[in-house]
Amino acid sequence: MAMERELLRHLVKKPATIIYPFESPEPIEGTRAKVEIDILKCIGCGTCIHDCPAYALEMVGKGLTCDMKWYPGRCVFCGQCVESCPRNAIKQTAEHDLATTESVESAGMMSERFVEFNRPKKE
C-alpha cells in the first residue's frame, strides 16, 4: 500500500504520454538526424565514404564533378561523415521525420532508396 498517495497524485496529473502523430515532442537542439550535403562545397575526396560505418553514402562520378547519394535506410545517424568532411560540406539537421508514405515495391527496397545531391551542370 506504500504507493497509494503517489497513485492518487498522478490521477490529477497530465499523462506523460504524448499522442504522437497529433503532437510531437519538443525538438532537442543538436539531435543527429537527416544528413544534408552541400554538393558545391564537396571536393569529391571520398573521406566520408571511407569512414561511413554503415556504407550509407555513395559517390557518382569523380572529384570536382561528382554527385553524392545518401541512403537513409542504411544510415545509422552517427555523424561521422560530418566530422570527416575536410570542407564542412556535410551537415546534419534535426529533421527526424524521415518515414514516407510512398509505396515501396518490397520491404527490402527500403535500404536501396536514396536522396540525391546533384551538382548543377554547366550548359
Binding site: 497513485l7 492518487l8 498522478h10 490521477l11 496529473k13 499523462p15 506523460a16 504520454t17 499522442i19
Partner: peptide
Amino acid sequence: LARLQNRRGPM
C-alpha cells in the same frame, strides 16, 4: 489504471 500510471489508456 492508465491514469494512475501516468499513461493515457485507450483513446
